Amino acid sequence: MLDIQADAAPDRRPAIVICAYDAAETGWDPVEDLSGIAWNPPGARTVPVAADDPDTLATTLQDQLEQHGCRALLLVGRTSNGESFHVQMRAENRVLDGTRRLDDTGPGVARATAPVAEIVQALNDAGLAAAASSESEADAGSYLLFRILSGLPDGIDSPAIGLLRAPAAASDAAVQRAVKAAAEAIASHLSPLPRSHSV
């Protein structure tokens, strides 16, 4: 008799953590059907993380990024600036309410490591108006982006970390399309896991 469990090939797809950080956000649902299985882009697997208060969420996301096989993080939120999707390229060193620096000795800004140009192109190809933005909005998204980027260890294998912002009036269907397009663009830059890190 064959041992199906032993014969199954290990999953060598890198993981992308996707987190809609606002508990009121209804646009991104990682589970598309009754199977209960999260959607995955070609060549990668997604790890959905639910919204929480920003400090707890920052710790949770940092923990996820330390897991073997986790190569990317896509934060998903809304923008109050304009009617197009934005891929935020940087975040300022500010506390959540924006009144002072979060880290007195840290850099003034942290830059996203996700492939911003490719994400914008993928959104446009999906029929969604999108642009890269260097404006850091004073909200939980910018706070999380800075905390996570500034907490990365030095090294050449930094994970791809980005923040996708949907316009306030965007429908749930448009947000779903945008998140999938962004995740697919990120996944296209990720290589399979080495055999020693298979999960």
Rank of each mutant, 00 (worst) to 15 (best):
L164D: 08
S158A: 15
E135C: 04
A126K: 03
I156D: 15
L152S: 00
G162E: 03
I148D: 09
A132Y: 03
I156L: 13
I119T: 09
R165F: 01
L164R: 12
A131F: 10
L164K: 12
A122F: 06
A129F: 02
S136Q: 03
Y143M: 08
S136H: 10
S136A: 15
A126T: 02
A130F: 05
G127Q: 09
F146I: 14
L149A: 13
I161C: 05
L144D: 06
S133W: 04
A138P: 06
E135T: 14
L152I: 00
L128F: 01
L123R: 06
L163C: 08
L144M: 09
A129E: 13
S150V: 14
L163D: 06
A160Q: 14
D125Q: 15
L123V: 08
L128A: 05
A140Y: 09
E135V: 15
Q121T: 13
Y143W: 14
L123P: 06
L123D: 03
R147I: 04
R165Q: 12
N124K: 14
L149E: 11
A122M: 03
A140M: 10
D157K: 01
A130R: 02
P153D: 02
G151W: 01
S134I: 13
Y143Q: 08
L144A: 07
A138R: 15
S142E: 10
I119S: 09
I148G: 07
S134G: 13
L152E: 02
P159L: 00
L145V: 12
L163V: 04
S158M: 13
A122C: 07
N124C: 11
S136P: 01
V120P: 07
F146R: 14
A126M: 02
G162K: 11
L152D: 00
A122R: 05
I161L: 10
R147L: 07
S133V: 09
A129H: 05
I161N: 04
G151I: 07
A130I: 11
I161D: 04
S142G: 15
A138W: 02
E137D: 12
S136L: 04
S133I: 08
A160N: 08
S142P: 01
L163T: 05
S158K: 15
S142H: 06
A140Q: 12
L123W: 12
I119W: 09
A129S: 14
N124Y: 00
L149I: 12
A132P: 15
S150G: 09
V120I: 10
D157C: 00
L128N: 02
I156H: 09
A160K: 14
I119D: 06
G162W: 08
A140N: 11
L152W: 00
V120F: 04
G151D: 07
I161A: 05
I148C: 09
R147S: 14
Y143H: 12
A130K: 01
D139A: 11
P159V: 00
R147H: 11
D154R: 00
L123K: 06
A132F: 04
A126E: 02
I119E: 03
I161E: 05
F146P: 04
G155I: 02
G162V: 11
G155A: 03
D157N: 11
L149W: 11
D157W: 01
Q121R: 13
G141T: 07
S142V: 06
V120D: 01
R147M: 10
R147C: 13
D125G: 07
V120T: 12
S142W: 06
L149C: 13
